[in-house]
Simulated scan of single mutants.
Amino acid sequence: MDRFTLLSKKKIKDTFPLDFYGEDGSWRFIIRAEHPGEVLDAMYWRAYISCHRKEFDLLHIATGKFNYKYNYSTADTSELHFGTGGSPMRINMMGPIVPISAILAKVAEQSAPKSA
């Protein structure tokens, strides 16, 4: 084995787990690929869940959480007591980290025929 093959295998190993960030409005989530064979599935499901968020309960299959800041601004006069009208507020939020294996298992479970 030459040194280039060894170098590239080490480099690939160091990049996993690989996170794919998705979002639906202000709500964000991570789909995590644990190894190279899960990357395409993670990319597909990140995009699909971003568009069909109400079909998935990611909070119950999440294995972790991450913090992020959301810039919220409104010109609605009923919300003026939150800050100065129209100026953005930074809100700390948490999003779920979901491994792609959990999503694939859930989809397989839902698509399996129910036995009587």
Rank of each mutant, 00 (worst) to 15 (best):
residue 2 D to M: 15
residue 2 D to G: 15
residue 2 D to R: 15
residue 4 F to L: 15
residue 5 T to N: 13
residue 5 T to F: 11
residue 5 T to W: 06
residue 5 T to A: 13
residue 7 L to V: 06
residue 8 S to A: 13
residue 9 K to E: 11
residue 9 K to I: 07
residue 11 K to A: 11
residue 15 T to N: 07
residue 17 P to L: 01
residue 18 L to R: 15
residue 18 L to D: 13
residue 19 D to M: 00
residue 21 Y to A: 07
residue 23 E to M: 03
residue 26 S to G: 06
residue 31 I to G: 01
residue 32 R to N: 03
residue 33 A to C: 04
residue 35 H to P: 01
residue 36 P to L: 09
residue 36 P to C: 07
residue 37 G to T: 03
residue 37 G to Q: 04
residue 38 E to Y: 00
residue 38 E to I: 03
residue 39 V to K: 11
residue 39 V to W: 04
residue 41 D to N: 10
residue 41 D to E: 07
residue 41 D to R: 06
residue 41 D to I: 08
residue 43 M to S: 10
residue 43 M to C: 05
residue 44 Y to P: 02
residue 46 R to L: 08
residue 47 A to L: 03
residue 49 I to A: 06
residue 49 I to G: 05
residue 49 I to Y: 07
residue 50 S to M: 04
residue 54 K to E: 15
residue 54 K to S: 15
residue 56 F to W: 09
residue 56 F to T: 04
residue 58 L to E: 02
residue 59 L to Q: 15
residue 60 H to T: 10
residue 60 H to N: 12
residue 65 K to E: 15
residue 66 F to I: 07
residue 67 N to H: 10
residue 68 Y to T: 08
residue 70 Y to T: 04
residue 70 Y to P: 00
residue 70 Y to F: 10
residue 70 Y to I: 00
residue 72 Y to M: 14
residue 75 A to T: 00
residue 76 D to C: 00
residue 79 E to H: 12
residue 79 E to Q: 15
residue 79 E to I: 06
residue 80 L to W: 01
residue 82 F to S: 09
residue 85 G to W: 04
residue 86 G to D: 02
residue 87 S to V: 01
residue 89 M to L: 13
residue 89 M to V: 09
residue 91 I to R: 07
residue 91 I to Q: 02
residue 93 M to S: 08
residue 93 M to F: 02
residue 94 M to G: 01
residue 95 G to S: 06
residue 97 I to K: 12
residue 98 V to Y: 01
residue 98 V to A: 00
residue 100 I to D: 01
residue 102 A to I: 03
residue 102 A to N: 09
residue 103 I to N: 04
residue 105 A to H: 05
residue 106 K to W: 14
residue 106 K to T: 13
residue 107 V to H: 07
residue 107 V to D: 05
residue 108 A to L: 08
residue 112 A to G: 01
residue 114 K to G: 02
residue 114 K to T: 07
residue 115 S to E: 09
residue 115 S to W: 02
residue 116 A to S: 12
